[in-house]
Amino acid sequence: MNATTLAWVALAGGIATFAIRLLPMLASERLQDRPLPPRLRRFLLALGPSSIAAMLALSVTDLLPADRLSATLPAVTAGLAAVWLTHRWSGNAARATLAGTLAYGVVAALAGM
């Protein structure tokens, strides 16, 4: 891979990503004094939770390939259960994340994944 090509592609990709993140932000600030229609406001407020739910489903689906479902399902179930229980007990996302990862890793190792 040519170093110069890589550098300018990385730079252009970075600028494109940055523009996608920045421009709507600037536009929304210019419009912020105009009251949003209630449905649009509800839509925007619900985007965050919806995106988290979608990212969760997508990342779990990636871990459950159809041809290895019986082998991978116990570890995923154990991990999700550990997150839920730890979050219920501690209310702390970092602890819950660690506990879920640990539970997944242990069950996956026992299952020989």
């Binding site: 990212m55 969760l56 871990l63 991990g79 994340t97 994944m113």
Partner: peptide, 16 residues
């Protein structure tokens, strides 16, 4: 293999 579960765990912890 265990680290593959970090993001699903994080998303669930955020969603709860």
């Amino acid at each position: 293999a265990a680290l593959a579960f970090v993001l699903p765990a994080l998303f669930l912890a955020l969603l709860l």
